[in-house]
Simulated assay, not measured.
Amino acid sequence: MEHSRHAGWLELFFDLVFVALAGQLAHSLHGDPGPADFAVFLALYLPPWWAWINLTVAANLFEDDTARRRLLMLTAMLSLAVMTVAVTEATGERSTAYALGYAGSRIVLLGLWWPSTTRPIHPGDALVPRWRPLVYCLVPAVGWAASVLVPAPWRFVIWGVLLAAEVGVLFVERSAGLPRRLHVGHLVERVGLFVIIVFGESVVGLIGSLDTEWTAAGGWVALVGFVMLAALWWSYFDFGSAAAETVLRAAAGDRAVPLARDVTAFLHFFVTAGVVAMAGGLATAVEEAGQGHGHLARGAVVALAGGLALYHTAHACIALRFGRRPLLVATWAVPGVGVPLLVIGVAGHLAPWQVVAVLTAEVVAHLLYARWVTTRRLRTRTA
């Protein structure tokens, strides 16, 4: 039976870098971002997210609290801090720093995984084949470091190819020694803490924008926006996170690790990206309402409403991956995605506070529906 595990102090300290990263990325979507800005946002968010989830899984598997592990994780923290500083200019003059920061994170990952090639991860497991950490960690590190010698835009093509290759390794037929079980509670908690980080950036953005535009109109939008974030938090941790832990604990055998991989590593990228985008849009909505603008800039509407649509879409995919019936998922996913898309279409006729109010109404309705479904199921089971 799995023993209880929680995030350690080192992991919580490590996450502080991502507080800054979320702020940098949300700021890049402030104002009136265009299609290129959104594409760059997703492209530059993926590598640090991928580094975080890989390091989180390593911490999940290797529980030792030695000085060696601490130094490796602190080195990873520095590497990701470099990426955070560089992320807003990573397609320009800071692309070298961004690439070298990511290369550093892969070297750390190699250091974390290498001991498992000489001793099993769990008693009774086989050794991890040496080619796996070399191919998965060292080769990308060398590639990212070497990419600084290649001019743009080919440098960015190399980054994309290397990331795709890393993901591809995870789908190669399982070899002896790879983990077949994870500490589910710890993993769900770590992902939940990351979600808290991006929700936190949304709250910080609301407060900062209201401080800039200290008006009744700006305060009203900030208040309604806070209700939206509170409802999202409530529904995520009462239903999304709880359901994930239940399903992952129930998964058995070779199904468990791929299911955890798909839900945490892949689909939660879009969950968190949606919230970060919403943070940029909400901050702009507060400022534009405070300045008396008649409607919200289109880019801000896309960040806010599009971020919410992406958030709901990712959760719908998670539910389907868990085996939920498509018709039941559609009952909340269709309005969850459709209402934000409708808001984008008619935003030119809505004031900033109306945009935020309609989206908040959808989120609150989603929460109330989830609570109603849960209550009905409990009554049915006890009847």
Rank of each mutant, 00 (worst) to 15 (best):
residue 134 L to G: 02
residue 202 S to D: 02
residue 155 R to S: 04
residue 226 F to I: 15
residue 354 Q to G: 10
residue 124 G to H: 04
residue 16 L to D: 10
residue 254 D to H: 11
residue 362 E to M: 05
residue 293 H to Y: 06
residue 333 A to C: 12
residue 236 Y to H: 14
residue 369 Y to I: 13
residue 80 L to N: 00
residue 81 A to W: 06
residue 99 A to P: 00
residue 75 T to G: 15
residue 327 L to S: 14
residue 329 V to F: 04
residue 126 A to S: 04
residue 195 V to L: 07
residue 164 A to R: 08
residue 210 L to M: 07
residue 128 V to F: 02
residue 241 S to W: 02
residue 346 V to D: 12
residue 219 G to F: 08
residue 194 F to P: 04
residue 171 F to T: 02
residue 168 G to M: 08
residue 19 V to M: 14
residue 370 A to T: 04
residue 109 L to T: 13
residue 314 A to D: 01
residue 197 I to Y: 04
residue 29 L to C: 07
residue 114 W to C: 06
residue 357 A to C: 08
residue 45 Y to A: 15
residue 321 R to I: 08
residue 17 V to M: 13
residue 224 V to A: 05
residue 241 S to Y: 03
residue 234 W to C: 14
residue 246 T to R: 12
residue 299 G to W: 00
residue 152 A to H: 06
residue 344 I to D: 06
residue 346 V to C: 13
residue 214 W to P: 15
residue 294 G to Y: 10
residue 234 W to K: 09
residue 72 L to D: 04
residue 237 F to H: 01
residue 28 S to R: 03
residue 84 T to I: 03
residue 166 E to Y: 07
residue 257 V to D: 01
residue 219 G to C: 09
residue 146 A to S: 13
residue 317 C to L: 15
residue 325 R to Q: 11
residue 27 H to V: 08
residue 130 R to E: 05
residue 302 V to G: 00
residue 320 L to R: 05
residue 264 T to V: 14
residue 197 I to M: 08
residue 335 P to H: 13
residue 92 G to K: 02
residue 136 Y to T: 06
residue 173 E to K: 11
residue 59 A to C: 09
residue 57 V to D: 05
residue 181 R to D: 02
residue 289 A to I: 12
residue 129 P to Y: 06
residue 14 F to C: 05
residue 49 W to Q: 12
